[in-house]
Amino acid sequence: MQGLLWELGDHHVTDVVFERRDSELDQRDHKLVEVLQGRHAMPPRLRLAWCSPMLEPLLWLPDIVAGAKALAERGDPRFWSQLEANMLVRDKEIR
Rank of each mutant, 00 (worst) to 15 (best):
Q2L: 15
Q2P: 07
L4M: 13
L5R: 05
W6A: 09
E7W: 08
D10W: 12
D10Q: 15
D10T: 10
V13S: 02
V13D: 03
V13Y: 11
T14R: 05
T14H: 05
V16R: 00
F18S: 07
E24I: 13
L25A: 13
L25H: 04
Q27R: 15
Q27K: 11
Q27C: 02
R28F: 09
E34L: 05
L36Q: 02
L36M: 10
G38Q: 05
A41H: 04
A41C: 05
P44F: 06
R45A: 02
L46F: 03
A49K: 01
A49G: 05
W50V: 01
W50K: 06
C51R: 15
P53N: 02
L55D: 15
L58R: 15
W60C: 11
W60L: 13
L61F: 14
P62D: 04
P62V: 05
D63C: 09
V65D: 03
G67L: 00
A68H: 04
A68S: 10
K69V: 09
K69T: 02
A72Q: 08
G75K: 02
S81H: 07
S81N: 14
Q82E: 14
L83P: 00
A85W: 00
M87S: 09
L88D: 14
V89A: 10
D91S: 14
D91V: 01
D91H: 11
K92N: 03
E93A: 10
I94E: 08
R95G: 11
